[in-house]
Nucleic acid binder design. Sequence first.
DNA 1: CCATTGTGCAAACATGTGGTTGCAAATATA
DNA 2: TATATTTGCAACCACATGTTTGCACAATGG
Lengths: 108, 108
Amino acid sequence: MDTRRDIFQAIADPTRRAIITLIAIQAMTPNAIAEHFDTTRQAVSKHLRILTECELVTQKQQGREIYYQLEINKMKEIDKWLNQFRKIWQTRFDQLDEVLATMKNKAK
Amino acid sequence: MDTRRDIFQAIADPTRRAIITLIAIQAMTPNAIAEHFDTTRQAVSKHLRILTECELVTQKQQGREIYYQLEINKMKEIDKWLNQFRKIWQTRFDQLDEVLATMKNKAK
DNA sequence: CCATTGTGCAAACATGTGGTTGCAAATATA
DNA sequence: TATATTTGCAACCACATGTTTGCACAATGG
Protein backbone atom coordinates (compact mmCIF):
# COMPACT_ATOMS: atom_id res chain seq x y z
CA MET A 1 0.00 0.00 0.00
CA ASP A 2 2.90 2.31 0.66
CA THR A 3 4.46 1.42 -2.67
CA ARG A 4 5.58 4.29 -4.82
CA ARG A 5 2.90 4.72 -7.46
CA ASP A 6 3.60 4.53 -11.12
CA ILE A 7 1.39 5.63 -13.98
CA PHE A 8 1.82 2.34 -15.87
CA GLN A 9 0.68 0.36 -12.87
CA ALA A 10 -2.25 2.73 -12.50
CA ILE A 11 -3.57 2.06 -15.99
CA ALA A 12 -2.99 -1.69 -15.67
CA ASP A 13 -6.34 -2.18 -13.98
CA PRO A 14 -9.33 -2.22 -16.38
CA THR A 15 -11.66 -0.55 -13.87
CA ARG A 16 -9.18 2.31 -13.45
CA ARG A 17 -8.91 2.72 -17.21
CA ALA A 18 -12.70 2.92 -17.36
CA ILE A 19 -12.72 5.52 -14.57
CA ILE A 20 -10.12 7.55 -16.46
CA THR A 21 -12.21 7.48 -19.61
CA LEU A 22 -15.33 8.36 -17.64
CA ILE A 23 -13.95 11.45 -15.91
CA ALA A 24 -11.96 12.56 -18.95
CA ILE A 25 -15.05 14.29 -20.28
CA GLN A 26 -16.14 15.87 -17.00
CA ALA A 27 -15.27 15.76 -13.32
CA MET A 28 -17.36 13.43 -11.20
CA THR A 29 -17.95 12.50 -7.55
CA PRO A 30 -17.01 9.03 -6.21
CA ASN A 31 -20.68 8.12 -5.79
CA ALA A 32 -21.51 9.10 -9.35
CA ILE A 33 -18.50 7.14 -10.64
CA ALA A 34 -19.38 4.07 -8.57
CA GLU A 35 -22.85 3.97 -10.14
CA HIS A 36 -21.20 3.09 -13.44
CA PHE A 37 -19.53 0.00 -12.04
CA ASP A 38 -20.47 -3.25 -10.42
CA THR A 39 -18.48 -2.65 -7.24
CA THR A 40 -18.85 -0.80 -3.97
CA ARG A 41 -18.18 2.90 -3.59
CA GLN A 42 -15.23 2.08 -1.33
CA ALA A 43 -13.55 0.06 -4.06
CA VAL A 44 -13.90 3.00 -6.44
CA SER A 45 -12.57 5.27 -3.71
CA LYS A 46 -9.48 3.07 -3.48
CA HIS A 47 -8.94 3.29 -7.22
CA LEU A 48 -9.28 7.07 -7.03
CA ARG A 49 -6.66 7.13 -4.29
CA ILE A 50 -4.23 5.22 -6.48
CA LEU A 51 -4.95 7.50 -9.44
CA THR A 52 -4.48 10.53 -7.20
CA GLU A 53 -1.19 9.19 -5.79
CA CYS A 54 0.35 9.05 -9.23
CA GLU A 55 -1.16 12.45 -10.07
CA LEU A 56 -3.35 11.17 -12.88
CA VAL A 57 -6.34 12.63 -11.10
CA THR A 58 -6.98 15.74 -9.00
CA GLN A 59 -9.78 16.58 -6.59
CA LYS A 60 -11.93 19.66 -6.30
CA GLN A 61 -13.96 20.00 -3.11
CA GLN A 62 -17.39 21.51 -3.56
CA GLY A 63 -19.34 21.57 -0.32
CA ARG A 64 -19.38 18.00 0.92
CA GLU A 65 -18.92 16.62 -2.54
CA ILE A 66 -15.52 15.97 -4.06
CA TYR A 67 -15.20 16.14 -7.80
CA TYR A 68 -12.47 14.04 -9.37
CA GLN A 69 -10.94 15.26 -12.57
CA LEU A 70 -8.51 13.69 -15.00
CA GLU A 71 -5.13 15.38 -15.19
CA ILE A 72 -4.87 15.06 -18.94
CA ASN A 73 -1.30 16.31 -19.09
CA LYS A 74 -0.14 13.34 -17.03
CA MET A 75 -1.47 11.07 -19.76
CA LYS A 76 1.12 12.54 -22.05
CA GLU A 77 3.79 10.69 -20.08
CA ILE A 78 2.54 7.46 -21.60
CA ASP A 79 2.64 9.10 -24.99
CA LYS A 80 6.18 10.20 -24.27
CA TRP A 81 7.24 6.65 -23.40
CA LEU A 82 5.66 5.42 -26.65
CA ASN A 83 7.77 7.88 -28.62
CA GLN A 84 10.84 5.62 -28.66
CA PHE A 85 8.76 2.92 -30.34
CA ARG A 86 7.00 5.34 -32.62
CA LYS A 87 10.39 6.14 -34.10
CA ILE A 88 10.95 2.45 -34.77
CA TRP A 89 7.61 1.75 -36.37
CA GLN A 90 8.06 4.86 -38.46
CA THR A 91 11.47 3.62 -39.61
CA ARG A 92 10.07 0.18 -40.43
CA PHE A 93 7.32 1.87 -42.38
CA ASP A 94 9.87 3.93 -44.31
CA GLN A 95 11.87 0.79 -45.01
CA LEU A 96 8.74 -0.86 -46.33
CA ASP A 97 8.19 2.19 -48.52
CA GLU A 98 11.70 1.76 -49.85
CA VAL A 99 11.14 -1.90 -50.60
CA LEU A 100 7.94 -1.11 -52.44
CA ALA A 101 9.67 1.65 -54.41
CA THR A 102 12.46 -0.74 -55.41
CA MET A 103 9.93 -3.33 -56.52
CA LYS A 104 8.15 -0.70 -58.58
CA ASN A 105 11.40 0.34 -60.25
CA LYS A 106 12.29 -3.26 -61.02
CA ALA A 107 8.85 -3.78 -62.52
CA LYS A 108 9.63 -1.07 -65.03
CA MET B 1 -1.08 -17.77 -14.10
CA ASP B 2 -3.86 -18.81 -16.44
CA THR B 3 -5.22 -15.28 -16.39
CA ARG B 4 -6.08 -13.78 -19.72
CA ARG B 5 -3.18 -11.51 -20.59
CA ASP B 6 -3.59 -7.87 -21.32
CA ILE B 7 -1.10 -5.50 -22.87
CA PHE B 8 -1.61 -2.86 -20.17
CA GLN B 9 -0.86 -5.34 -17.46
CA ALA B 10 2.20 -6.47 -19.41
CA ILE B 11 3.74 -3.02 -19.46
CA ALA B 12 2.89 -2.38 -15.82
CA ASP B 13 6.07 -4.08 -14.65
CA PRO B 14 9.21 -1.92 -14.94
CA THR B 15 11.45 -4.90 -15.76
CA ARG B 16 9.14 -5.86 -18.62
CA ARG B 17 9.18 -2.30 -19.94
CA ALA B 18 12.99 -2.42 -19.87
CA ILE B 19 12.96 -5.75 -21.72
CA ILE B 20 10.66 -4.27 -24.34
CA THR B 21 12.97 -1.32 -24.86
CA LEU B 22 15.98 -3.63 -24.98
CA ILE B 23 14.68 -5.98 -27.66
CA ALA B 24 13.00 -3.20 -29.64
CA ILE B 25 16.30 -2.51 -31.37
CA GLN B 26 17.23 -6.13 -32.03
CA ALA B 27 16.07 -9.62 -31.11
CA MET B 28 17.86 -11.22 -28.16
CA THR B 29 18.10 -14.55 -26.34
CA PRO B 30 16.83 -14.92 -22.74
CA ASN B 31 20.38 -15.30 -21.45
CA ALA B 32 21.53 -12.15 -23.19
CA ILE B 33 18.53 -10.25 -21.86
CA ALA B 34 19.06 -11.54 -18.32
CA GLU B 35 22.62 -10.19 -18.32
CA HIS B 36 21.18 -6.69 -18.43
CA PHE B 37 19.21 -7.15 -15.24
CA ASP B 38 19.80 -7.97 -11.63
CA THR B 39 17.63 -11.07 -11.61
CA THR B 40 17.86 -14.72 -12.57
CA ARG B 41 17.40 -15.99 -16.11
CA GLN B 42 14.25 -17.79 -15.00
CA ALA B 43 12.63 -14.58 -13.85
CA VAL B 44 13.36 -13.01 -17.23
CA SER B 45 12.00 -16.14 -18.89
CA LYS B 46 8.74 -15.69 -17.01
CA HIS B 47 8.51 -12.08 -18.12
CA LEU B 48 9.08 -13.19 -21.69
CA ARG B 49 6.30 -15.72 -21.33
CA ILE B 50 3.88 -13.02 -20.21
CA LEU B 51 4.98 -10.75 -23.04
CA THR B 52 4.54 -13.62 -25.49
CA GLU B 53 1.09 -14.48 -24.14
CA CYS B 54 -0.21 -11.02 -24.97
CA GLU B 55 1.59 -11.11 -28.32
CA LEU B 56 3.90 -8.22 -27.56
CA VAL B 57 6.85 -10.48 -28.29
CA THR B 58 7.51 -13.32 -30.74
CA GLN B 59 10.17 -16.03 -30.72
CA LYS B 60 12.48 -17.19 -33.44
CA GLN B 61 14.29 -20.48 -32.83
CA GLN B 62 17.85 -20.61 -34.14
CA GLY B 63 19.56 -23.87 -33.23
CA ARG B 64 19.18 -24.20 -29.49
CA GLU B 65 18.94 -20.47 -29.02
CA ILE B 66 15.63 -18.65 -29.03
CA TYR B 67 15.61 -15.05 -30.13
CA TYR B 68 12.87 -12.85 -28.70
CA GLN B 69 11.70 -9.97 -30.79
CA LEU B 70 9.36 -7.09 -30.06
CA GLU B 71 6.12 -7.12 -32.04
CA ILE B 72 6.14 -3.39 -32.63
CA ASN B 73 2.69 -3.34 -34.19
CA LYS B 74 1.18 -4.54 -30.94
CA MET B 75 2.56 -1.42 -29.27
CA LYS B 76 0.25 0.59 -31.44
CA GLU B 77 -2.68 -0.69 -29.39
CA ILE B 78 -1.52 1.50 -26.52
CA ASP B 79 -1.23 4.38 -28.94
CA LYS B 80 -4.76 3.64 -30.11
CA TRP B 81 -6.09 3.73 -26.55
CA LEU B 82 -4.35 7.06 -26.03
CA ASN B 83 -6.15 8.51 -29.03
CA GLN B 84 -9.33 9.30 -27.10
CA PHE B 85 -7.31 11.46 -24.72
CA ARG B 86 -5.23 12.96 -27.47
CA LYS B 87 -8.42 14.44 -28.87
CA ILE B 88 -9.14 16.01 -25.48
CA TRP B 89 -5.71 17.51 -24.94
CA GLN B 90 -5.82 18.81 -28.48
CA THR B 91 -9.20 20.46 -27.81
CA ARG B 92 -7.96 22.00 -24.56
CA PHE B 93 -4.97 23.33 -26.43
CA ASP B 94 -7.22 24.83 -29.10
CA GLN B 95 -9.37 26.41 -26.39
CA LEU B 96 -6.27 27.92 -24.85
CA ASP B 97 -5.34 29.26 -28.27
CA GLU B 98 -8.77 30.86 -28.51
CA VAL B 99 -8.44 32.45 -25.07
CA LEU B 100 -5.06 33.86 -26.02
CA ALA B 101 -6.45 35.19 -29.30
CA THR B 102 -9.33 36.87 -27.47
CA MET B 103 -6.92 38.47 -25.01
CA LYS B 104 -4.83 39.75 -27.87
CA ASN B 105 -7.88 41.28 -29.56
CA LYS B 106 -8.98 42.96 -26.34
CA ALA B 107 -5.48 44.37 -25.90
CA LYS B 108 -5.91 46.19 -29.15
C1' DC C 1 28.53 -41.33 -26.26
C1' DC C 2 29.02 -37.84 -22.64
C1' DA C 3 29.46 -33.20 -20.89
C1' DT C 4 28.07 -28.57 -21.68
C1' DT C 5 24.92 -25.02 -22.99
C1' DG C 6 20.39 -22.76 -23.63
C1' DT C 7 16.02 -23.02 -22.43
C1' DG C 8 11.23 -23.86 -20.30
C1' DC C 9 8.38 -25.52 -16.54
C1' DA C 10 6.79 -26.51 -11.69
C1' DA C 11 6.85 -25.76 -6.82
C1' DA C 12 7.42 -22.74 -3.00
C1' DC C 13 7.61 -18.30 -0.97
C1' DA C 14 6.90 -13.37 0.41
C1' DT C 15 4.54 -9.59 -0.97
C1' DG C 16 1.11 -6.86 -3.66
C1' DT C 17 -3.63 -6.22 -5.24
C1' DG C 18 -8.55 -5.54 -5.46
C1' DG C 19 -12.45 -6.37 -3.03
C1' DT C 20 -15.72 -6.14 1.08
C1' DT C 21 -17.37 -4.64 5.66
C1' DG C 22 -17.40 -1.41 9.33
C1' DC C 23 -16.54 2.97 11.20
C1' DA C 24 -15.44 7.95 11.77
C1' DA C 25 -15.40 12.75 10.18
C1' DA C 26 -17.38 16.55 7.84
C1' DT C 27 -21.12 18.91 5.54
C1' DA C 28 -26.00 19.66 4.58
C1' DT C 29 -30.88 19.56 6.00
C1' DA C 30 -34.91 19.21 9.13
C1' DT D 1 -29.64 20.07 17.81
C1' DA D 2 -30.58 15.74 15.59
C1' DT D 3 -30.42 13.22 11.28
C1' DA D 4 -29.05 12.13 6.67
C1' DT D 5 -25.54 12.34 3.11
C1' DT D 6 -20.88 12.11 1.16
C1' DT D 7 -16.67 10.64 1.73
C1' DG D 8 -12.04 8.53 3.41
C1' DC D 9 -9.61 5.13 6.07
C1' DA D 10 -8.42 0.70 8.46
C1' DA D 11 -8.88 -4.22 8.91
C1' DC D 12 -9.46 -8.34 6.79
C1' DC D 13 -9.52 -11.78 2.98
C1' DA D 14 -8.78 -14.45 -1.27
C1' DC D 15 -6.02 -14.40 -5.02
C1' DA D 16 -2.34 -12.58 -8.30
C1' DT D 17 2.44 -11.46 -8.91
C1' DG D 18 7.52 -11.61 -9.08
C1' DT D 19 11.26 -14.08 -7.50
C1' DT D 20 14.15 -18.07 -6.45
C1' DT D 21 15.47 -22.93 -6.57
C1' DG D 22 15.45 -27.30 -8.69
C1' DC D 23 14.66 -30.15 -12.49
C1' DA D 24 13.91 -31.84 -17.31
C1' DC D 25 14.76 -31.68 -22.14
C1' DA D 26 16.87 -30.59 -26.58
C1' DA D 27 20.91 -29.01 -29.27
C1' DT D 28 25.90 -28.52 -29.62
C1' DG D 29 30.79 -30.00 -29.24
C1' DG D 30 34.54 -32.97 -27.57
